[in-house]
């Protein structure tokens, strides 16, 4: 059986209200959207909230004709997800999971040599560049489309982001070595 591409499925959903098209789009992209959200949040619950909100916005926007096909569906959905992540990060939060020890929470980050913690210290655009290029494997053209800059500017952003990450890690290493 031939698999329909995203844009065909979008058309079927928008024009015919095809539930199967919606389901296929959702199942195809749910895991990547969740993975992307987990790059921003420590707890799976936060990522699940982001996934829910992102898909709700996505299908609503599709029905309202807000996807004009100027970019790929995946790129457009990624941009929605990033916006939801950033909005959520800026929301004031109540302390959660107080019963978990700090070491339990921090453990996965230490496995990554502190890189995830360092990532959180970067400006939003640099963090996004590293997530897209180095963690999600986007090419420069698609990353540029998500970020909303030219390919050259996006490559330059990625260059600066890698160096900024390195500087933070080196600084932290220096502090640890000096202890």
């Amino acid at each position: 059986m031939e698999l329909a591409d995203d844009e065909t499925l979008v058309e079927r959903f928008v024009v015919d209200g095809d539930g199967r098209a919606m389901e296929t789009l959702f199942r195809r992209h749910m895991e990547p959207v969740y993975r992307l959200a987990r790059r921003y949040f420590k707890f799976p619950e936060d990522a699940e909230e982001v996934v829910s909100e992102s898909f709700l916005r996505c299908f609503k926007a599709l029905q309202n004709g807000q996807f004009r096909g100027e970019s790929r569906f995946r790129t457009w959905l990624t941009r929605i997800t990033i916006n939801v992540c950033l909005e959520r990060l800026r929301q004031p939060r109540l302390p959660t999971l107080l019963w978990e020890s700090a070491s339990e929470i921090a453990a996965p980050e230490h496995e990554a040599g502190g890189a995830i913690e360092a990532l959180e210290k970067l400006p939003d655009d640099q963090r996004l560049a590293l997530i897209l290029f180095d963690l999600e494997g986007y090419d420069a053209k698609e990353a540029a489309s998500v970020i909303g800059r030219s390919v050259t500017a996006t490559k330059s952003l990625h260059y600066r982001a890698r160096r900024a990450l390195r500087d933070i890690l080196e600084l932290e290493k220096g502090e640890t070595d000096g202890m």
């Binding site: 919606m22 749910m30 699940e48 890189a115 995830i116 990532l119 890690l169």
Partner: peptide, 28 residues
């Protein structure tokens, strides 16, 4: 070193099938 430290991050778990089905139902 910085790049391999970043790309060496642990694999992310997948959300539960229960979550996916509930959300799909809500979207519908």
């Amino acid at each position: 070193q910085a790049i391999s430290s970043l790309t060496g991050t642990k694999t992310i778990e997948t959300p539960s099938p229960w979550f996916a089905e509930r959300l799909l139902h809500r979207l519908a």
